[in-house]
Each structure stands twice: as C-alpha cells, then as structure tokens.
C-alpha cells in the first residue's frame, strides 16, 4: 500500500515536472534554443493566476482567472520572442542559455517586487478534498494534475498531428530552411511556439500552486524539470513527460528508502548517469557534422 501511495504522489509531482519539461522541448524542437527560464515562467504563471483570483488581490472567480492567466502567459511568451530572442538569431546556443538564465533572474526579481517573497497559496477549487481509494489517499489536486496533464498532452499531440499550425511548427522544427522555402513564416511560427510554451508553463504553474504553496524560488523547479527533459530524451514530447514522471517517482522513493541527504541527490545523480552512459539515447546529434 505504501508503495502505491508513494507512486501516486510521485506521479502527481512528475506531471508538473513533465509539463515544464514539455515547454522546454517545444521550444528546443522548434528553435534549437533552450529556455532555462521555463521554471520561472511556471512560477510567473502561477502568480499571475494567484493575483487574478485570490481575494487579497483581484478576487476574480478561479475559472475565469485560470484561462486568463494562461492567455497572459502565452502573450508574454510571444512578446519575449518578438522583442528579445528573435534578435539573437545567429548567435551561439550558449548565448541563448545565458540569456534565458538571466531572464529567469529578472522574472524572479520582478515577481518578488509584485507579490513578495513569502510563500502564498492559490485559492483554487482544486486544492480541496481527498479521495480514499482502498487506503490510498489521493488529493483532489493530485488527481487534477494527472488528469490535466494527460489531457493536455493528448491535445498537444492532436494539435501537432491535425492542425495546419501544428504541422507548420513541426516542419519548422525539422528543417527551418526547407520550411521557409515552403512558405511557412518560420519566425512567426517560432513566436507562436514561445507563446504556446508560455501557456503550458502557466498551466503547470496553476496546477503546481493548487498542490501547495508557491513562492518566488519555486521557479528553480525548472532545473529539475530540465533534468527530467534530458533523462527522458530531449527530442520528443512524450519523452519529456516520461522523464518528468521518472524524476517525480524517483524522489518520494529515494526519500523513503535512502537516508536523509541522499534523496535530493537522486534526480541529478540519475541525470549524470544517463548523460555518461546513454548519451546517444538522448542525442539526435551526430558527433561529426558533414563537411
């Protein structure tokens, strides 16, 4: 029973990691850029929703505030690409990595000024109630996280397979030059992908905040989600989700079976092991380029 309980709570956490990782992978696939601020996007999305819905701030009903927060984050993502990242075209990957890390700092500072550094709880209807299924206690929020993640992944999958925009995004991700010649507005598509990943981050943030308190430094979760994305394989959306679930599940088990101090190492140790022993499983890169 305990094992099942650990598994369930791990899965719920893992879904949040998976959602953040999904944002990384979306952007990486489309632009070969890595958004190290994705975790901070998540945090920002949560706080935007919190600012809209909590009685202390604007007091809008949750079911209005949540979609609004998602839209705001999508617009923010698009604008970010439009004003900042588009101008980095042609600079090295490292420059983008450093830039997005700096962006994370800036987001944390601004969010800290607006919402303060105290942990806050989102007044979310998802946050109330437990289910008891034969001895396994499952929080309403946990259930919501799992359900929403599965639904969102399915939606994204359908979006990429069925819609014109989704197909254009895929094309742009696979070969920018060819997509450009086929008449796909690559730059605008990239902007939309940044918007989409902003929206996904907002969903992740709202769900995360429903599970417990949120604070400015929650954005650092992004690093763990990034590890998840690498573990799962950086190239694919399902891979990102799987990696998130793996990391999410490992954590409660590690803290249950290992002595204190070792448990928080587990995801990173796993990450390093994967990078050392199975780098080819993760790469779509070939070591030597064509000359």
């Amino acid at each position: 029973m305990e094992v099942v309980q650990l598994l369930v709570s791990g899965l719920a956490n893992g879904c949040v990691y998976g959602l953040i990782a999904l944002g990384f992978v979306l952007i990486y696939k489309a632009t070969e850029q890595v958004n190290f601020a994705q975790g901070d996007f998540m945090m920002l999305g949560a706080f935007v929703c919190l600012g809209l819905t909590n009685a202390h701030y604007m007091g809008l009903p949750f079911w209005l505030a949540a979609p609004l927060a998602v839209v705001i984050m999508a617009v923010l993502g698009y604008l970010l690409d439009f004003f900042v990242l588009r101008h980095l075209f042609g600079q090295s990957q490292t420059a983008v990595v450093i830039l997005t890390i700096a962006l994370g700092f800036v987001i944390r500072f601004v969010a800290g000024v607006i919402w303060g550094h105290e942990p806050q709880t989102l007044e979310s209807p998802l946050a109330v109630g437990d289910f008891n299924l034969g001895g396994v206690v499952l929080g309403m929020a946990d259930l919501a996280v799992i359900v929403v993640t599965v639904l969102l992944t399915l939606c994204l999958y359908q979006f990429f397979q069925r819609t014109r925009l989704g197909l254009a995004m895929q094309a742009a991700s696979q070969n920018q030059m060819a997509a450009y010649f086929m008449g796909i507005p690559v730059k605008r598509v990239q902007g939309m992908i940044w918007g989409l990943s902003g929206a996904v981050a907002a969903v992740a943030g709202i769900l995360f905040a429903s599970k417990g308190a949120i604070e400015i430094s929650s954005g650092l979760l992004g690093i763990k989600a990034f590890a998840a994305a690498v573990i799962g394989g950086f190239g694919s959306l399902p891979g990102a989700l799987m990696g998130g679930l793996i990391v999410g599940v490992i954590e409660p088990f590690a803290s249950y079976y290992f002595p204190a101090g070792y448990s928080q190492i587990a995801p990173y140790a796993l990450l390093l092991l994967v990078l050392v022993f199975r780098p080819h499983g993760l790469f779509s890169q070939v070591r030597i380029k064509k000359v």
Binding site: V84, H87, L88, Q91, A95, I98, L99, I101, A102, L103, G104, F105, V106, R108, F109, V110, G112, V113, H117, I216
Partner: peptide
C-alpha cells in the same frame, strides 16, 4: 534590502549586453 535586486539588475545588464 530588496531580495533579488542584485541578481535581477545583473540579469538585466547581461540581457542588454547580449542583445
């Protein structure tokens, strides 16, 4: 003290330089 001010300003400077 404003927490995160230093890193925030530092991050801003960096973004401006990269751009």
């Amino acid at each position: 003290a404003i927490p995160g001010l230093e890193t925030g300003v530092f991050g801003m400077i960096l973004i401006l330089f990269i751009l």
